[in-house]
């Protein structure tokens, strides 16, 4: 079994805010991340697939094709967007990177070719914060 990772990136705005709480409670829990007019990050997305190399190509799956799928299905939805306002699959959810990585996983699995097995996603928000998701519910 070999694991192959493709890295993509996108730049987006977001805000951490629970609409069912008061402004004070949001401020207390999320601090400056709750800023009304958003802030933003350079996000990096690590997409790891696993499998056996194809005897004909030596590839688990063509990394360029994987990149094209991730760009079309994920990055194009997120890049230079407001995650709270502009992204269909984040509507009604808190825009934490935890929820975002789960949302990306759920978008990506159905559009990958059947023979491609998604192993993990790593989503980096800053040089000091990232999350990993393995599809476990």
């Amino acid at each position: 079994m070999v694991y192959l990772t493709r890295i993509e990136h996108f730049n987006a705005a977001h805000r951490l805010y629970n609409p069912s709480w008061s402004a004070e409670k949001n401020e207390e829990v999320f601090g400056k991340c709750a800023n009304t007019n958003w802030h933003g990050h350079n996000f990096e997305l690590f997409v790891t697939i696993k499998g056996e190399p194809d005897p004909a190509t030596g590839f688990i799956f063509d990394a360029k094709k994987l990149s094209a799928i991730v760009k079309e299905k994920i990055v194009d939805q997120l890049d230079h967007r407001n995650l709270n306002m502009d992204v269909d699959f984040m509507q009604g959810k808190l825009c934490s990177i935890e929820n975002l990585v789960i949302g990306i996983w759920d978008q990506l699995v159905p559009v990958l070719p059947e023979r491609v097995q998604l192993h993990s996603l790593k989503l980096v928000e800053t040089s000091k914060i990232y999350v990993e998701y393995y599809g476990e519910k």
Binding site: N11, G40, H41
Partner: peptide, 12 residues
Amino acid sequence: GKCALPNYHGHN
């Protein structure tokens, strides 16, 4: 281009 999108984006 997309840097002008109305709802902002962001950077580190």
